[in-house]
Amino acid sequence: MAAPLSRQKLLREWKLYFFILPSLAMVLVFAYYPATSAIYHSFFEWAGGDTKQLIGFDNFRRAFHDQVLIDSFFTVSVLIVFNLFKMIPSILLAVLIHRLKSDRWQYLYRVLLVVPMIVPGLVTLFIWKFFFDPNLGVLNGLLDFTGLKSALVWLDHLFGWGVFYANVPIGWLSQPELILPSLFLWGFPWIGAVGVLIFLAGLQSIGQEVYEAAEIDGVGPIGKFLYIELPLILTQVRLSLVLLIVATLGGYGLQLQLLNEYGGPGGRGMVPGLWMYNRAFYAGEFGYACAIGMILFAFILALTFVNNRYVRIEK
């Protein structure tokens, strides 16, 4: 930690302020100003032009009765649960790679994990959209090929879902009932390269002697995971948990590109961020969009506080 300066030294060092000035200016203009502007404009009816009308809390009142927004919060909660589940493969893969005896293989697998990251995120997304295509898509092809399709049709018959039919290609992204399942399937097998690398970095602190001691005590592979590995990466798991929840809550790029600006058929994929984007750029209701942004921000802030309060992250 840098020590406070004496008055005399201060007179000599004041030029240092010029060092922080550019960063500060950027942050003030492109982060603080928009944030303040969002708070201000959430109290206005504003179509983005010069004219705006102060309407007090009407935007917020409207938001609390906006069925689309309320449903979107349910949808995003479901997506958060999905994403928590999707963390499991990354953790397992990290543990598996870590347990390999050979460093060379460990390195090779780490490189192979990073390889998919060279594809722009959007391309991965569009390739998945292509996988979901009803007629040419890989997913339907695979289901037909393996005969799983007939199993799905049979299950459909049994439970009366009314979703899968024998001779009709499955419209993964065009049937309202299938939107959430598709968003769950998306990205299978759900390996996040960055996630695996974080977990691996955490596992690296486990010494070989810990494993040897565990082996002498007769701890099995599952025991090793529960008593040695999981506690050591708990910090990283919590950290990525928090980042994941915040990112899911505020994110909407996936829904916008995989479905459309209305969250797909029946609006089943509508999330709060997407509704905000939709109101601003498709309906021109900038004031209302700012209000939705504020509500979303309040949720994220509340979650961050809960997290800081109850989920400690030791550095």
Partner: peptide
């Protein structure tokens, strides 16, 4: 603490 996405509307106007 401030998620960038919720700022996108005023950022656009700016």
């Amino acid at each position: 603490l401030m998620p960038g996405v919720v700022n996108i509307t005023p950022l656009f106007m700016l």
